[in-house]
Structure formats: C-alpha cells, structure tokens
Design a protein around this nucleic acid. Sequence first.
DNA 1: TGTATGCAAATAAGG
DNA 2: CCCTTATTTGCATAC
Length: 360
Amino acid sequence: MTLPTASEKSRIPEASCTSSNEQINPFYSPFFSNLTSQQQQQLFLTQLLLSGATCPPLNPLTNALQFLLHNSALFLQQQQQQQTNFPPCPIPPFIDYNNKSKESISSINLKHKNDLNTSVPLDCSLSDTNEKSTIDDDDNSPTIATTLATLPSNNSEETTTVDGINLEEIKKFAKAFKLRRLALGLTQTQVGQALSVTRGPAYSQSAICRFEKLDITPKSASKIKPVLEKWMREAELKYGDRLKNGPTNLQDLVSDLNTKKRKRRTSFTPQALEKLNDAFELNTHPSGTDMSTIAQELNYDREVIRVWFCNKRQALKNSAKKSKSNQINDDNESTSSSLMDDKLSDTTNYAKLQHDEILS
DNA sequence: TGTATGCAAATAAGG
DNA sequence: CCCTTATTTGCATAC
C-alpha cells in the first residue's frame, strides 16, 4: 500500500479553489457557482435533454429556443457517439434491464469493450481479475465488490444480502446501468451533470464511477440506485421519441420534492488553510464567537469553519490512534501521539471559552 | 479523454 | 446550538 507523500498534501491549485464569495450565476443554483460558463452551458443542455423536468410548452419563442437547444444537444451527443465508434443512435432497447439474462448483458458488454477506454475493466463483474493487491479486510465498512469477492463463490445463484440489501440485484443493476449509459454514448461525467440538475439527490462522476465498480457500501448503493434508476427511465423516454420533440413529462416535478442536494464541497485556499491550521494549533476548540471571527476573516461560511474544526479534530484523533497501533513494538514517535491525545483531551480551553461566550 | 482514487468536506446519528 | 464518531461523497488529479 503506497502511502501518500507529504507533497501530495500541498497540491491544491489556487485557481480551482472555491470559496463562498466567488461569483454566482443567479440563473443556476449556487451549487453550480464554481462551474465555468461553458460547463454551465453544457449542463443546461444536458438538463434539457435528460432531466425530464423541462418546461411545458409556453409560447412559440420558447418552443423554438427549446428546439434549437435540444437539437444542438443531440448533435453533440451524436458527435460523441461517432467519436467512440458507436453506431449512430442505435440505442438498443433496454428497458427490462432487471430481467435481462446475464449472457446477453455480457455479450453486449464484450461488444463495446474494445471500443471504449481499454484501461478500464469494463466487465465490471464478478470475475474481477485484478483484485486490489491489498485485500484490506480490516476496513470497517466493506464495499460490495470486496464483500462479493470474499464470499464463497459456490452460491453464485443464491442471493447474497447484507442488512437486507440484495447485493446481487445491485450488481446486476450496476452492470445494466453502465451498459445503458454507454449505449447512450454518455460519460459518467455527463450523467453526473444531468443528475445535478434534476430534482432529488445528485451524484458526481466519482460516485457514479464507484457505483459502477461497486466500490461502495451496500448502504450507499441502495441509496444511489433509485436515483440512477429514475434517471435511466427518463433518459429512456427522452431517447425513445427523440424526433417527436415530444411533450416532456411533468411527473417528476411532483416526485421526491423533499430530497435535497448535498452542499458543494468547499475547497479552501492554501492561505485559508494556513490560517486555519494556525488557529487550530492555538486552540482546537474555538468558541462560537472565535469561529465567527475566523469565518469573517477568511470569508467562508461560519458553518464551514465549524465543520473544518470538527473534521480536523477527528483527523488528528484518528492519526494518533493509527500511529499508536502502528508502532506496537517501536518506541519512537510515541511522544507525538501522546501529545495529540493530550491536546485533544484538553477541554480546559474549550470550557473556559464557552464560559466566556455565555457571559458575553 | 474518460475513469479511478486519495484525501478531506459534508452529513447522519446519538449525546 | 454544539460536540463526537462513523460514514458518505466530491474535488482535484493521477492514471
């Protein structure tokens, strides 16, 4: 297992840092504030094409605009398909993915395997030959892939469930989803962008990648699965009557309104991190007012700062625990971990500051 | 270019 | 409200 080098920690490029004070295009939700306008445009096109949440017909102008956007998006899609050597718009019907036999799935899979990124183990399957070199069975939350891999292979026909979650079913869907996505000529990134625009939870390219590879816990998978299923159904409809410029379905406007999107991940600037670390050195438990001050100084949400301190404490604690268990025999460095423990268990500062805050 | 992945931000759950 | 702990998830970037 290769440990990350220290240099890896300082690889946050300045330009890509997102802070809460960056400009926000009001047309899109603040969640997209750190996308380039080009990305936003593409995202918008993707939305029209895939979300199923497009507007009902309003007036001729709107329709014309929609039509243009729709067709330009289609054009882009077709270009992509040609680039990847897919037959033009075959879009094989694949609605009953749950009932597809394993054989047909794998045959389609093999067909596309050569056309696509060969570095990716496309068969995303049980016969994952290149298992991770380190069979990290010490993980407390094993992924589906590892669970299925470590399982005795004799019960291939039996359903393997964890916490009432059917792993085989998820695996089957993951496979079907990937096939469908590729058949539509879409990348993981594009699906992620489409999801970010639809109602309900969104997932990034990373998440989709992990889902397809089953590199997630059963719990996570069962959460993502319905989202992807829904998206797939809508994509199906979109492509089903593509030339009809058909009426968009409004059904999902009323479905799962309650679900929220996750807050976009904050990227701190190196300067901000430096200051945060300095503050942490001085006090691991800053008071509410302290955090407000820091937040104001650095121009981040106070909540973001608070969470940063929580995570920092957690990381410190974990690393102390780790280094402690790592060095069962050797005595060197034992001082550092005990220092960390001392620091974290020192709630004197925290309590005192809280008291001060109450008084003020 | 797309996909895979390390690190850490965000969230959930139980005080 | 804030904490801790465990976990989920995404940004940045390596592959």
